[in-house]
Simulated scan of single mutants.
Amino acid sequence: MTLGPRVFKTGIAVTLSLYICLFLNLEPAVFAAVAAVFTIQPSIYRSWRQLLDQVVTNTIGAAVALFSIYFLGDNPIIIGLLMMLVISLSLKMKMESTIPLTLVTVLAIMSAPGNEDIDFILNRFFIILVGIGSALVVNLLIIPPNYKKNYLEKTTSVFQNMSLLLRTAVSNELTETSFHGQSKQLQQDIRKLEDQYKIFDEERAKLSKLKPLDVREIVVFKQMLKTLQQGEEILENIEEHYFQSGASDEEDHFFDRHIEQLIKYHEYLFLKYEGKTRKLEGEYEMNIMKESAAFFERSQDIYMQNKERKSRLFIVASSIIEYSFYLQRLDQLIDQYYKVRKN
């Protein structure tokens, strides 16, 4: 079992909110704990955004509940209709993430006896705000997210899995169960990496004045993601088209060899970014360009020999060529990034 930073921070936020309610004699404190759970976010910007959105929608929810108590009543049908109204308002304001906690606020106000008392309503509302505030403080001060480190670690992990699959895809060395299991894991990890990049880019766009981030490095990170996505596409094409093309042993070796070269190049680029390789002044890139050109010409020859049968093989070849272009672009961006840093 792995306890990540977000899990750890959720536990601390819940504890803090309960202690604050205990200190201020606010009951029932459980609503503050629920609010803290819903408010914890994976980034600083999203924490601020969530705080603002939660305050707005929870204020609206409390106002709607107050209006209903005095003018419509608090029977189950009315409460159900209010839930629908609150959800509609939150969607209209594009604050979908606040819906669960806003509904909790409305229920907290309407589902208890004595809810006609304005002090009771303010008490419930303030309890919710304690939970929201506790989550924000914890998110800002406890284990603040290291976006660059997290992103690079995840990128490396995804690449390791992808390289294993690409190296064994054509040769079909892994068992079908193992290959499909690893492929499914790769798809899930790439989706998570896409989410991490969105968070990283969000921080750059929204909090750049508070925490400057190197835009060129962001571009490098985006290209890293695109190369991994293209590697995933090769795997999908191999599974969908390669084995149906009736490739010969010679063609298997031909494809397998070039994929192996590209994987080594990809691995080299990770080391290059980390500053762990000797400077080759573009030699590696030039060799890959030549190899890719030769691979493309040979693929065309195979296709022309039997267009009907080898069209599937050419689809795989095209995705491999595109992968090589993405790698070359990543190489160039890394060079540009380090040149600017030196200056």
Rank of each mutant, 00 (worst) to 15 (best):
Phe314Ile: 09
Tyr338Met: 08
Arg312Ala: 09
Tyr337Trp: 11
Gly80Val: 09
Ser245Gln: 06
Leu225Asp: 00
Glu267Leu: 11
Lys226Trp: 10
Glu285Asp: 13
Phe254Tyr: 11
Glu194Tyr: 13
Met162Val: 13
Leu16Met: 12
Glu281Thr: 09
Leu225Phe: 05
Gln160Gly: 13
Leu85Ala: 09
Arg124Val: 02
Leu269Pro: 03
Ser134Trp: 01
Asn58His: 04
Ser111Gln: 15
Phe120Ser: 04
Asn123Ile: 05
Glu308Leu: 11
Glu236Gly: 11
Val340His: 14
Glu176Pro: 01
Met289Lys: 14
Arg216Leu: 14
Ala112Trp: 11
Leu82Pro: 04
Leu101Thr: 09
Arg298Pro: 01
Asp117Lys: 00
Lys226Val: 12
Ser68Trp: 01
Val55His: 08
Leu166Gln: 00
Glu322Arg: 12
Ala63His: 02
Ser324Thr: 09
Leu22Val: 11
Leu18Val: 08
Ser157Phe: 15
Gln230Val: 09
Asp119Gln: 14
Leu333Arg: 05
Phe125Glu: 07
Ala35His: 03
Ala65Lys: 03
Tyr19Val: 15
Ile60Phe: 08
Leu327Asn: 02
Arg309Ser: 09
Phe221Val: 03
Asp252Lys: 15
Asn343Trp: 12
Leu262Lys: 00
Met84His: 07
Leu271Glu: 15
Asn161Pro: 10
Phe179Ile: 07
Phe296Gly: 10
Leu101Ile: 15
Ala35Asp: 04
Lys154Leu: 11
Ile259Gln: 00
Phe71Ile: 11
Glu116Asp: 15
Ile44Ser: 02
Arg216Lys: 14
Leu141Glu: 07
Gly275Thr: 03
Gln229Met: 14
Met83Lys: 07
Phe243His: 11
Val130Ile: 09
Gly181Gln: 06
Lys310Trp: 00
